[in-house]
Amino acid sequence: MLAMSTPISLELSINDDRVRASVPAHWTLLELLRYELGLTGTKQGCDKGDCGACTVLIDGKPQLSCLILAANAEGKKVQTIEGLQPAHRKAGGVGLDPVQDAFDRCGALQCGFCQSGMMLSARALLNENPTPDRTEIRQALSGNLCRCTGYTQIVQAVELAIAESTGAEPESPSWSDGNPWKSTTSLSGKNGGDA
């Protein structure tokens, strides 16, 4: 009801920007991001804490933005999928964050709806532990449901990002003799992620 919609004024840190917004007091961080700030990369799959699609990083930790009131995000650093590449560039990187690039090269982005949250969970894991094993990867991603991939190409993507950061050769998938993830967008061998 209109009466419920008494707005409150908030000041937040989103993707390293200081943002001021005025939203109804009962709005979640997810609603604020999507419907007030237009940061629609954060997805809503259930709005009740079951699916993980709304995962964002709060002070570096993966959190469900549908379970957090917008007001409770004040004073914390919120990072969404939109902030991943810019943060990587700011830190002197080129192209995409290696997690995003690996997800794309491994085919993990089928419908993509779960993947903003998934990639942020993977990013948080690698920040904490740069060389997790497969069980640790599966554990870290177990709060993010994916209905398309069977998780295989997601796990491969995280392992590819790890292998490339340590200079190791990634394990070949069952359907390929070698490393199939070298070929990218360009048939002449350029890396589409840097385009």
Partner: peptide, 23 residues
Amino acid sequence: KSLRKIEGLSKATGEAVYADDIM
């Protein structure tokens, strides 16, 4: 060839527009 998907990068960055993203 195992090329990237045509829309993959737009999904990787959160740029892809799904129905509820339309305002």
